[in-house]
Design a binder for these strands. Sequence first.
DNA 1: TAGATTGTTAATCGATTAACAATC
DNA 2: TAGATTGTTAATCGATTAACAATC
Lengths: 212, 212
Amino acid sequence: MKEKISISDATLKRLPQYLRILKEKQTQNIQCISSTAIAKDLQLNPIQVRKDLALVSQSKGKPGVGFEIGGLIRNIEESLGLNNSKEAILIGAGRLGQALLNYKGFENRLDIRVAVDSDKNTCDNKKIFHIKKMEDLIKKMNIHIAIITVPKEKAQNICDILVKNGIKAIWNFAPVNLKVPEDIVLKNEDLTTSISILLKKLEEKNRGGKLQ
Amino acid sequence: MKEKISISDATLKRLPQYLRILKEKQTQNIQCISSTAIAKDLQLNPIQVRKDLALVSQSKGKPGVGFEIGGLIRNIEESLGLNNSKEAILIGAGRLGQALLNYKGFENRLDIRVAVDSDKNTCDNKKIFHIKKMEDLIKKMNIHIAIITVPKEKAQNICDILVKNGIKAIWNFAPVNLKVPEDIVLKNEDLTTSISILLKKLEEKNRGGKLQ
DNA sequence: TAGATTGTTAATCGATTAACAATC
DNA sequence: TAGATTGTTAATCGATTAACAATC
């Protein structure tokens, strides 16, 4: 087994990009790929690609040839947590919650086992439990991952209850700065922040364009 | 007018966090806040907060007192693109698309003027146009921002058409590596990548815990 | 004045890139 | 063998943190 290493956020964000390219090549029955080819496709530096791959790959690349695609896919997927406890509870079955509940793209990474909400009780064929059952469900099902898609006013309160009941990782879609204990993994998926960044970049590009 | 400066991605991600704290304090009728207080709240370094604020703030902070909240809010919002062209078209009115269409949290940052899809034609009271009208709509409405929420197989094709019709910024929710010309702003909002990162961090924490 | 906090200049840290010998 | 690509070691670059005089 490969020694555990801490992978930087920067690398972590590139791994799924590599994965997509590799899988695409695999469907084309291609056996090997070079870091140069990957880098060109993603507009990255080939050395950076090699460094990233070295962190997760069990086997080395062959000079003059490249990396074996099958092995690389396995290693990246493993590194990204395929072998992980990945059962989650969803809190809040509004539109966004429902979209996640029915999202097909998680592949093997996430299994939303149960959803709760304060009023709705079904979403298509899936049952939505009442939110007052939340604590019970988490404990009985021994779930450690929670997805928060409730209105922002309710988010911190929900978050506190989740932590108290043994949740270890929170994927937060509410636009608030949640406060969690240090040992809890918190990932914010804040659409307002994202769009702000996009607009800012567009503005910078526009200014650059006008000044040229 | 403040000179245009390029703000790093790292800073850009913190600005909305500051904004939330400032607005919260404002509702409490607090006039000033120190970088120390902001930093403590967000578990950041106060010097970092000051550097960030210096980049966007027109006025300086007062030693011994802090920053004037009202001015800071105005400056950050301005910096994040409040004054911007922010009309967008949404491509793909599936669950995720509908969630965005009805999302209340964008505040003044984004105005989804029109949505298109290949089959649906309404979403609540909002009209969804057929996708074959997409090019016309973009040109007639002079829209420069597009949101892609179509299935991944269709995303690159849609993307190419968007660029050809004058779209300058793309907010992509499809889990693919889109290829765009250099002058196009592309922001990926990839849920699969996000959850992978979350799982990876959880795994690292767990291992750390066990080893201690 | 004394205490708190500021902005600036310098040091540190980590990620990216460059250079290059090794090897398929 | 020649060409391509690898992994490693060193250099660069940018972001974060530290130190500290200035000031409300």
